[in-house]
Design a protein around this nucleic acid. Structure first.
Length: 752
DNA sequence: GAATCTCTTGTTTTT
DNA sequence: CAAGAGATTC
């Protein structure tokens, strides 16, 4: 047994974690301290030294990227494929369980997963039916409420109406939404987790089966677990049973918890030590950093030190100080992008690779000026995140056809495409079918069939609807009859739906892109034909070994089509483009977690953008601390060189707005910064700042503040109004904006 | 019922 | 700027 290969490359703390004999382990691992490294070696240790079968190991991550990465690294270290080991995201694993045990989970066999876009549509539809004004009660808030409830494990019946404060309608919508999903075989992201949890509770024989099957559970990015995920984990681990044999090994960093808005709770790290102390629980801290220079770490430590709610941890390194941090104050976002691009050119000239470079930002829209600049200079780049492949409208249309073919009950899919391409079924008709469906308490498809039979529709509408129903049935017959491969099925459906013609008929660039995307969908299906879903393969392989009990882990007779649809919903299409080319990497700070780069640009360091304005409105400060952790994540991505940039003017909604430097910049010790351009010194910035502060918060009696947009119905051009407030008075003139026709902008004429 | 125009409103982050 | 809602016209 070659143990040395596993433990030699580890430091003392890492080795302690990898070789731990405690039943449960909590590894608090700072950024760059070898978190995944430890996890991978732990698994190798278990397999090679402790002779644990990969079949008994469950490894959970949060992103598909991380799951793929982990499997790859384990196989690399073990020098053998570990097909029958379960490695996946919480959502992926939950989905797998529900497919295998759909009956026990009270689902239909071919249930479909809906994304938040579909979810919002359904919610809007329900609110309309209930006669709730969506102007006053934004559907987004209801969506938020439903997901938050589910993330916390709350079904409708668990919710205390009194706590809703005159927003009882939200509960009503929740109930209707649940009923609709159940009736139509739809499952949203949060529902996957909640059902999987309930599956444990309601089906003890299944729980027992999996408890016997697994001996080791390992969780990466543990700080990001939300309530329901943690509950799922706790139940599975049997931590409440005195005699559980399961070993739980979690790795996390409280300073990198950035998914609080999705229900993640850092408290779980503390709770873990309590909840899992029954056997034995060991806590190990990894603080030595192998990634960044001393200066970068000092910056990171200084910034994160401003947070109050921490478990406490300070990164250190044996390496040298390295270069100073560069802060560049740009004139606007175009200037910012130009600076970044020129620095990239320098790096490449010195022989650096482009793939070692990352441009990071708070929100995905910020990628655009950078893309523009990079294209201009012919620097290859790749953008992660943003609108993903399977989220594009035309792709979702095609998928909706596929979904409907797989499951006629799928109301969300039906609504999406019943009149796409337009086939003479208008709002009126759809409305009637919807209303009738509610009355009959059945899904739209059956309702449409019945209404035609009962002659409840006008002849014209009935004809159009019938044609649509026939189209789907025809598709279904063709696709299901022969032993068509998945990609052939997709080819047929794209063709028969005439979506390409519909989307391509406009002669614009965008129309062209849509057609290309539809063609790409066929390729995606082809790839899926060839490779399949790694987790499914693991399940199939492990079946042969599954002789512990009579529980079948087989996911029913699940069709490749259903498999493909689930893949589309859960993966949303990362990694479509060519990854082999040497590209500069552009991504949000959230997607950068877990990655590292030699050269990092942290862009848009402006108050309101980062930290984001929504987080600043929160009085408790909890959201601000999360923004700061996000900043910490960004800083610690850098190995050698880090540049922070901010702009004096930033275009928001097509309008140039003044911007302040982010408060996080002020939290960095000046001694660590090299100003590329002196902050707050440039004349334009000073002028803009004075202008801004004199107008901030001042309102006149009509509640208008300077800079705000108002319709021209309220004021005529040139009107002079007085604005008072915050100890200042301003006389203001109303001016049209640059387009000259649409909105008005209030400009300061003179101060009184 | 479809196409076109006008106006309003909005975007944080992701499974 | 861009998507969505609502109104108007064909």
């Amino acid at each position: 047994m070659d143990i040395s290969r596993i433990i030699v490359p580890l430091n003392k703390a890492q080795r302690q974690a990898v070789c731990s004999e405690a039943q449960n382990n909590l590894v608090l691992a700072g950024a760059g301290s070898g978190k995944t490294w430890v996890l991978v070696h732990r698994i190798a240790w278990l397999v090679q030294v402790e002779n644990v079968s990969p079949y008994s190991i469950l490894a959970v991550t949060f992103t598909n990227k991380a799951a793929g990465e982990m499997r790859f690294r384990i196989e690399n270290l073990l020098k053998t494929p570990v097909r029958n080991m379960w490695v996946g995201t919480f959502h992926g694993l939950a989905h797998r369980l529900l497919r295998a045990h759909w009956q026990d989970a009270d689902l239909v066999e071919n249930f479909q997963i809906i994304d938040s876009d579909d979810q919002l549509r359904l919610i809007k539809r329900i609110m309309k039916e209930l006669g709730i004004d969506d102007k006053q009660n934004p559907p987004r808030e209801v969506q938020w409420f439903i997901n938050e409830s589910k993330d916390n494990g709350l079904r409708c019946e668990h919710i205390n109406v009194r706590e809703l404060h005159n927003r009882e309608y939200m509960l009503e919508v929740y109930q209707q939404y649940e009923a609709l999903c159940q009736r139509t075989g739809l499952v949203d992201f949060a529902e996957l987790l909640l059902r999987a949890h309930e599956l444990w509770l309601k089906q003890p024989h299944l729980l027992k089966h999996y408890q016997q099957r697994f001996s080791h559970i390992l969780v990466d990015e543990f700080q990001d677990t939300n309530t329901i995920q943690y509950a799922w984990l706790k139940v599975l681990s049997g931590n409440n049973l005195p005699d559980t044999h399961l070993n739980t090994f979690v790795v996390g960093d409280d300073d990198q918890s950035i998914y609080g808005w999705r229900g993640a709770k850092i408290e779980h790290i503390r709770e873990f030590e309590q909840d899992f102390k029954a056997g034995s629980c060991e806590t190990i801290r990894l603080e030595q950093n192998y990634r960044s220079t001393g200066n970068i770490l000092e910056v990171a430590n200084a910034v994160i030190a401003n947070n109050t709610e921490r478990l406490g941890k300070e990164l250190w390194t044996e390496d040298g100080e390295g270069e100073l941090l560069q802060v560049y104050q740009a004139f606007n976002e175009i200037d910012e992008a130009a600076y970044v691009a020129s620095q990239i050119e320098k790096w490449v000239e010195k022989g650096g690779k482009r793939s070692e470079i990352a441009i990071l930002y708070r929100s995905n829209t910020q990628s655009q000026p950078h893309e523009y600049e990079l294209v201009k200079r012919a620097i290859p780049y790749r953008v992660y995140g943003g609108l993903r492949f399977y989220e594009r409208a035309e792709i979702k249309d095609a998928l909706a056809y596929l979904r409907l073919v797989a499951n006629r009950q799928d109301d969300a899919a039906l609504e999406r495409i019943i009149n796409v391409p337009t086939r003479g079924i208008g709002q009126r008709t759809i409305e009637m079918i919807r209303t009738e469906a509610v009355a009959r308490e059945q899904h739209l498809w059956q309702t449409a069939v019945d209404m035609i039979a009962d002659r409840q529709l006008t002849a014209r509408a009935a004809g159009s609807v019938q044609k649509f129903l026939d189209l789907i049935d025809e598709m279904s017959a063709v696709v299901n009859d022969d032993s068509m491969s998945l990609s052939e099925q997709v080819v047929h459906i794209v063709k028969a739906s005439r979506l390409k013609e519909f989307h391509g008929k406009e002669n614009s660039e965008r129309a062209q892109a849509k057609v290309e995307n539809l063609e790409e969908l066929v390729n995606a299906a082809k790839r899926f034909d060839d490779e399949g879903d790694p987790l499914l393969e693991a399940v199939k392989d492990s079946l042969e070994l599954s002789q512990i009990s009579d529980v079948s882990e087989e996911a029913g007779s699940i069709s490749p089509l259903a498999e493909f649809l689930a893949h589309a919903a859960l993966e949303a299409g990362e990694g479509q483009a060519d990854e082999w080319e040497d590209c500069v990497q552009l991504m949000s700070l959230h997607s950068a977690k877990g990655l590292e780069f030699e050269l990092v640009f942290l862009c848009g360091m402006e108050q309101g953008l980062f930290p984001h304005k929504n987080a600043l409105q929160d009085f408790t400060g909890g959201r601000l601390e999360e923004e700061r952790r996000l900043c910490y994540v960004g800083i610690t991505r850098a190995r050698q060189q880090l540049h922070l940039t901010h702009a004096e003017n930033r275009t928001i909604y097509g309008r140039s707005e003044l911007a302040y430097p982010s408060q996080f910049l002020a939290e960095i010790p000046a001694s660590l910064i090299s100003q590329v351009r002196a902050v707050n010194q440039s004349p334009s910035f000073t002028a803009a700042r004075n202008n801004y502060s004199s107008s901030q918060g001042d309102e006149n009696e009509e509640g208008i503040s300077i800079g705000q947009r108002v319709t021209h119905k309220k004021f005529g051009e040139g009107t002079v109004i007085d604005i008072e407030g915050m100890g200042a008075r301003a006389r203001v003139q109303v001016n049209f904006d640059y387009e000259g026709t649409r909105w008005l902008m209030l400009n300061i004429a003179k101060l009184v």
